[in-house]
């Protein structure tokens, strides 16, 4: 895995965050308690003098890992976050597609409307999935939260638009250029607290975190960040191979994202 210049990545992400803060009237950030979104909040603290100056939204389907809930509440308190928990609908029998897709998107739509957010920071990276590679740093969503990936705004010379005709809000992606190992290098350098599920016990750890239904662990003996970084330097396995919704065909993921799913 290619390790990039961390200082340059941080500088760009901080710039994007500050641009978003200045351009949007009502900005918020999504947090899943995973390493990427937690690192994103760490970058926000660097950008804004140790504070997170916007609300942080957790879309909760109620079946997350208990460790994730504990980590959420502890870190939200420690970092003084204004945490908004948006519950997504759950049914006794449902497909993973509807749980991860429409239900979470519906919860997000509800909370965006309720609070009138016009900008939303999301911690996706281009290297995670082919669909995400098509994203822009500031990416508009229409009134139905749909993403027109074939018709995206130009982003020339670090100029980003916060207003797009017909957009209900814009997604801000400060981590687009980062890869997995960069995230861990940042976490290590800045001593960012991490969800304990990432670290190995009994020969297993979680490399990518979703809810208890759609996440499976990987075989690994990496018990701390140094060991994780060492492991990532030689791995040939995709990061999200343990996520059920990513096992869908590529076009299904494209459809999910175009409908507003993260």
């Amino acid at each position: 895995m290619n390790e990039q210049n961390l200082h340059e990545l941080e500088e760009k992400s901080i710039y994007i965050m500050r641009e978003a803060r200045s351009k949007f009237d009502n900005l918020a950030a999504l947090w899943s308690m995973g390493k990427d979104s937690t690192a994103m909040l760490g970058i926000a603290r660097k950008a804004f003098m140790g504070k997170i100056p916007f609300p942080v939204i957790h879309i909760d389907n109620g079946i997350d890992f208990p460790e994730s809930y504990k980590f959420r509440d502890e870190l939200a308190k420690k970092w003084g976050m204004k945490l908004i928990v948006a519950k997504s609908e759950i049914r006794e029998e449902m497909s993973g597609f509807s749980c991860c897709g429409s239900n979470k998107t519906d919860a997000l739509k509800r909370i965006m409307k309720e609070h009138n957010f016009d900008g939303l920071i999301v911690s996706i990276r281009r290297d995670e999935h082919g669909i995400r590679a098509k994203e822009r740093y500031f990416s508009p969503r229409d009134m139905h939260f749909k993403w027109d990936y074939k018709n995206q705004p130009e982003e020339l010379w670090n100029n980003y638009s916060s207003k797009e005709k017909g957009a209900s809000h814009l997604r801000v992606h400060p981590l687009l250029d980062w890869n997995e190992i960069d995230i861990w290098n940042f976490i290590k350098k800045n001593k960012i607290p991490m969800n304990p599920l990432y670290f190995s016990k009994h020969g297993y750890r979680y490399r990518s975190l979703g809810c208890t239904h759609c996440t499976v662990p990987i075989k690994s003996n990496a018990k701390n960040i140094d060991e994780i970084i060492k492991e990532l330097r030689v791995t040939k396995v995709e990061e999200r191979s343990g996520r059920e919704q990513d096992k869908e065909k590529q076009y299904v993921m494209e459809k999910l994202r175009s409908l507003g799913y993260m």
């Binding site: 389907n61 809930y69 504990k70 599920l197 016990k201 208890t212």
Partner: peptide, 11 residues
């Protein structure tokens, strides 16, 4: 969902 009631336990 009610997995939050298991907070404090480890997987």
């Amino acid at each position: 969902g009610a997995t939050s009631y298991l907070v404090g336990l480890d997987i």
